[in-house]
Nucleic acid binder design. Structure first.
Lengths: 332, 332
DNA sequence: TTGTATGCGTTATCAG
DNA sequence: CTGATAACGCATACAA
């Protein structure tokens, strides 16, 4: 049961307090300019009427929406959820709101989201990755708003970047596995750009060490159970693979469990490594060796970069490399 | 490197096409009213200028923002991420955008988010759970916009509801475990309202069957490793607990792994049950017995309810019970 | 210290 | 079929 909604504007409050609309506006935005008594009077009227300023109108006149748009492939992946968590928390503290879009790994989706967000006159944008359609790039540049690309360190960013080198991360994991004595490696990952970069790094290190490498490709925006199937495939192929790097921890979990099921000892019979260092990585038995990537921090830094730019500050570095860390645990 | 952003409005496009601003507006919103030639001319100018309509202005005059606000405890929990996934996908199809907020399980946060969203003149709201401060309830009712509460089936909803009975879900799991022969049960969960309801149902069923119950309370917005600690506590207490129900799958995973670590066989020495049926539940070894709750569907239904209401349709049922399902797998 | 006029970028409405 | 005018709710700039 809802009461008839009475739309209350500045004018209504003004009448109630017997002042001009401008005085009400000032009570909210520059209270120090008002005589204490009038301020009290106005605040009381605001309270009584339940007035909530219309931010659309404010945005229209101030030319600032105080909204940041963010686009992720999917939030149904803990790793992007973490970045969004950091982003949202920081934005909240900075007085910005978050408009969210998901592409489900479809590039066209990004185009239409970018357009919609620009229509909303977002003050800034956060994009995931560095692979965008020419149209998206063009729109972003033409808009003139600050843009942060995340999860990567492209050579030619649209504007600002916070991330890490997926190439080096893949390389580091290969080197770690090789140093642990493995001579036949497996790789399992999707077809998205960041995973491809990890593979290239992994491959380069394998080649350099003269080590064999067997990749298995799964669909982007993967179902977790692809991990199980992919490692099953590698095992059944009898290529003598002794260590597999899966491009995210969810896949790695699935693969690890498949090894248990097949009574393979991890890491003795098969070493398993993941990517992301989700919370679950440390919980697994054996604990998962993986690459930690500071997902939450990426979101926080993105928010800070945008905010600094919106305050008109010069950004010390428009390219922040947060690095990564190989978390050597039990599984590899 | 950014080019100087040229703000292009309706007027600019109109000048370019040598028509009035209204004609441009019509080219976008009611093209059938225009003479084909003028339409072509205008569309060309729009294209050339890269014009993107300012939706803030549109919202101001139309009194419709085409934005839906959603508030979740945290998106760093796969289960809410799933609901958001469903919500966002459906909203996108319906032409609405998603403004997102997280409370981190803090009630005051909800108040301030609701206020901010109302200021943005969202067309509708999606809330998580049914426990809200009086202020939030009051604001929601006073706003007159459609509101959907999710993940619960409160007796006195603010407006519309989609969810399931947490009480019955808890009860069903207890009955399942009891039927499997367990006589001393453990429960691990947080202090949030929905978990409390699950506990009440679990407790009621235990009592009815004359079965012992040992609860362990962990912090809301729990860290996953609380699962490990909690079950360790139950085991060390030597209360002869043979089955533990953890209020989410993440906790259950952690508990399950702790059992492996202690060389307890699951389910023979200790049965483990979770809640949510996250993707990982089926992947675990042994596969996790849990309660499936249709998280994605909750988001979809919420979107549909809002959209129907915003189209002015009568909602057949403002209370949708999506139910749940005990997924009997190997762990219990 | 407070009030008045004006405009932000669009669309509803009414004329032509 | 197209254009002129007046709003939408607020804040900037100036006046009093």
């Amino acid at each position: 049961m809802k009461s008839t909604p009475v739309k209350v504007r500045l004018t209504e409050v003004a009448k109630l307090a017997k002042v001009s609309p401008m005085t009400v506006s000032r009570a909210l935005n520059a209270p120090e300019l008002l005589k204490p008594e009038t301020l009290q009077k106005v605040l009381k009227s605001i309270e009584q009427s339940g007035y909530v300023p219309d931010l659309n109108a404010t945005s229209l006149v101030s030319q600032k929406s105080h909204i940041i748009g963010a686009i992720v492939p999917t939030m149904n992946n803990a790793i992007f959820a973490q970045t969004l968590l950091g982003l949202q928390q920081r934005l909240d503290a900075l007085g910005y709101q978050l408009l969210l879009g998901q592409t489900q790994y479809q590039l066209e989706q990004e185009d239409s989201l970018v357009r919609a967000f620009l229509g909303r006159r977002v003050d800034g944008m956060v994009l995931t990755g560095s692979q965008h359609s020419p149209l998206t790039r063009q729109r972003m540049v033409a808009s003139g708003i600050p843009v942060v690309e995340t999860w990567d360190l492209p050579a030619h960013p649209i504007d600002m970047v916070v991330g890490f080198s997926n190439l080096k991360a893949g390389q580091a994991m290969a080197e770690y596995l090789i140093q642990r004595g493995h001579r036949v490696l497996g790789f399992v990952g999707g077809r998205d750009g960041r995973t491809q970069m990890r593979y290239r790094g992994f491959q380069a290190a394998a080649k350099k060490a003269g080590v064999q490498l067997h990749p298995v490709w799964v669909a982007a925006g993967v179902q977790m159970d692809q991990g199980r199937h992919a490692i099953g495939q590698l095992i059944d192929a009898r290529k003598a693979v002794t260590a597999v790097f899966l491009s995210n921890d969810a896949l790695a979990l699935s693969a690890l469990m498949e090894c248990h099921r097949r009574r393979l000892r991890v890491p003795q019979d098969m070493a398993i490594a993941g990517f992301a260092d989700l919370e679950l990585a440390a919980e697994l038995e054996p604990a998962l060796t993986t690459v930690k990537v500071h997902a939450t921090r990426i979101g926080e830094v993105a928010a800070d970069m945008l905010a600094a730019r919106l305050r008109g500050e010069k950004i010390a570095s428009p390219r922040v490399d947060l690095g990564f860390e190989v978390m050597a645990r039990e599984s590899a």
